[in-house]
Computed example of a mutant assay.
Amino acid sequence: MDAGEVVGHHPAVPLVRIALTGHAPTARLAAPLTAELARHGMPLRLVTGEQGAYLRDLTDPGSELAHARADMTLCVLDAGAVFDELAAPWDVADAELACARLTGRLRAVAAAHTEHGPGTLVLNTLPLLRTHTHQLLDERRRTQLSALWRDFNAVLLRLASAHPGLTAVDLDPLVAETGPARDTGPAAAGAPFSDALFAAYAREIGHLLRARTGHPCKRT
């Protein structure tokens, strides 16, 4: 039974509209997100944007996601939003410039959402993978990249906290609980996060929605 049928049979049940966009494929998030909201008694209507088109989805008032008038919009970003722009071989200075460009895009997204975006926009911190740090040849530069990455994520968290309509999910504590941020193997090709991390992220979204709608959270 889809969300519309659930609401048709149970009019008092709140239908939640979520818009989903991001840099990498997010299809693997749909199932855990649907299950998590169902656990909270909230049937989900999900509207997804075009892969990689998050900037247009979130800054163009004529985009499909803008017309969805979602209760919550998820912009799922991974480290590819930075490193996919870099040609090998790259150095820390190149990564720093790419982080600055992404910061500028996210500031534009925040401004657009403040001006005309409905509901809550959810950003997330970006896990740094070993496959990224070990593209650098020496430990000194790897350490510099790690420090740069922490600074970038701190800027992202502060950006979200400065805008009332924004919030951010810090993925570091979730990765510490779930294990590697990304699955290995051909079945996981292209997915930005592991199934376990997507499930943990979905739980955080469920708690956020309960809090934003004024219902007590069912913590697990």
Rank of each mutant, 00 (worst) to 15 (best):
E36Q: 15
G52N: 08
P127I: 02
D2A: 03
P180A: 01
S146T: 14
R39T: 14
V82I: 15
L86A: 05
V122F: 01
L121K: 06
P164R: 08
V122S: 02
L197H: 00
F83S: 14
A176I: 03
R101G: 07
D170W: 04
G185N: 12
L37D: 01
Q144W: 06
H132C: 04
L33M: 13
E5D: 15
A168Q: 09
S161L: 07
L208D: 06
S161T: 12
S161I: 00
R28T: 12
L106T: 01
A199Q: 08
S161F: 04
A100I: 12
T21C: 07
G52S: 09
T131K: 10
D57V: 10
D151F: 01
G119M: 08
L171W: 02
A112F: 05
E85W: 12
A66D: 12
C75Q: 06
A154I: 07
A100P: 10
R141T: 14
H40E: 15
P180W: 00
V6T: 10
V6M: 04
R219A: 10
A19C: 12
H134G: 10
A27F: 07
R69Q: 15
A19G: 14
G8Q: 13
R28K: 13
P14M: 10
L129C: 07
L20S: 05
A111E: 15
A199G: 08
L29Y: 02
G4R: 15
D151H: 09
H113L: 08
P173I: 08
P14D: 11
D60S: 11
V109G: 00
H9Q: 15
A95C: 14
L29H: 00
L102V: 11
P89W: 07
F193L: 12
D195P: 06
S63H: 06
P216Q: 06
M1C: 10
E5N: 11
L136S: 00
L209S: 00
H132G: 03
D57S: 11
V169I: 15
V7S: 07
R107D: 14
G8R: 14
R140P: 02
C217Q: 15
Q144Y: 06
L29Q: 05
A88M: 11
F193C: 05
T21P: 04
A189V: 13
A30R: 05
F152N: 03
G8M: 14
R142V: 13
A160D: 04
L197V: 04
T133I: 13
P127E: 02
H113F: 07
A30P: 06
H40Y: 10
D183W: 05
L102Y: 00
D183K: 06
L65S: 08
P164A: 08
A68T: 10
L65H: 06
